[in-house]
């Protein structure tokens, strides 16, 4: 093996190395600018125009905030979509995430067959949401589905807007639980066993140990889980798109953006306005997250 000289800072790098390092910084930066920032800024700018996606963009007229006022005031699916996104967030946050944590705690106790359970619960995470939508279709289908075959009911789980949001949420949670379980399981394995022992010596009960000692120690994981949950709720899209293109009780902001922009409607400006609203909402969460992370690092 060749002996390498000790690294003494950038001044000591050979010109070739400097170029390599430069490229290693420049290329990812350019990619991020190009794939993330440019489209994001372009969306925001487009949201002030009435571009129909046909012909050069110079043909678009700037119409100020009209798209935004239309979205909020006269576009009937918008407010249900906001409501559904909030329900989605609440359900993931209050039901799916705690349930994932609960499963992680159970599995962390090294029960017999815990590996099998672990795999079984994690399995849906590997599947795409589109596929999950299809799998659950087999269960929910009005005429051929498992539920209706077994119970003899004729409820149209995906078609009836009284049920379809909850049916979709159950399918989404099925996947989310596995994801959260794995994150917490990793977190729990990382907790220093001596902390638990110390708590036990001090006479703390199982429950107190968990809530007072183990859970607070996992603070970084908690933060990640919160962010993951919020992001999952905001970007919920594939599942409902597979079910019915986000219509009829399954409106979500993301599906409205897509059906306005991508479909033959091509209301690029109008759809961009909704995309921008989504961007602002997500930025709030991202900013909160970054603030907490920065504080911790200091």
């Amino acid at each position: 093996m060749a002996r390498r000289p000790k690294y003494k800072g950038i001044d000591h790098l050979s010109p070739v190395d400097r170029v390599v390092v430069g490229l290693m910084i420049a290329i990812p930066t350019l990619l991020v600018l190009w794939l993330v920032w440019l489209p994001a800024i372009a969306s925001v700018l487009l949201s002030f125009t009435n571009w129909d996606g046909i012909g050069p963009i110079s043909g678009a007229k700037v119409i100020g905030l009209k798209n935004y006022s239309d979205v909020v005031n006269i576009y009937p699916p918008f407010w249900p979509a906001v409501q559904h996104n909030l329900i989605w967030l609440a359900a993931l946050f209050l039901v799916a995430t705690p349930f994932g944590l609960f499963l992680a705690v159970l599995l962390d106790r090294e029960l017999r067959g815990s590996r099998v359970f672990q795999t079984a619960i994690y399995l849906p995470v590997v599947l795409s949401l589109a596929l999950i939508g299809f799998i659950w279709q087999l269960i929910y289908s009005r005429d051929q589905g498992l539920i209706n075959q077994v119970t003899g009911s004729t409820i149209d789980w995906y078609g009836d807007q009284r049920y379809n949001l909850w049916a979709a949420l159950l399918a989404a949670s099925w996947r989310h639980v596995g994801y959260i379980m794995l994150l917490y399981l990793a977190g729990l394995k990382g907790v220093d066993p001596s902390l638990r022992e110390a708590a036990r010596v001090d006479g703390a009960s199982e429950r107190t140990t968990f809530f007072r000692v183990v859970f607070p120690v996992m603070a970084p994981i908690n933060m990640i889980v919160i962010v993951v949950t919020v992001i999952e709720a905001l970007r919920a899209f594939d599942l409902v798109w597979v079910i019915n293109k986000g219509r009829n009780g399954l409106e979500l902001i993301s599906t409205l953006v897509t059906s306005n922009i991508v479909g033959e409607a091509s209301r690029i400006g109008f759809g961009s306005a909704m995309a921008t609203i989504m961007l602002i909402v997500s930025s709030v969460f991202v900013a909160l997250y970054l603030r907490v992370m920065m504080k911790e690092q200091r």
């Binding site: 009937p76 219509r247 009829n248 059906s259 306005n260 033959e264 409607a265 209301r267």
Partner: peptide, 18 residues
């Protein structure tokens, strides 16, 4: 217009049926 048919009339008729 396709934008009117797909983004206005489809949701409108579906909400009427509901």
């Amino acid at each position: 217009r396709p934008d009117f048919a797909s983004t206005v009339m489809i949701p409108a008729i579906q909400s009427f049926i509901k």
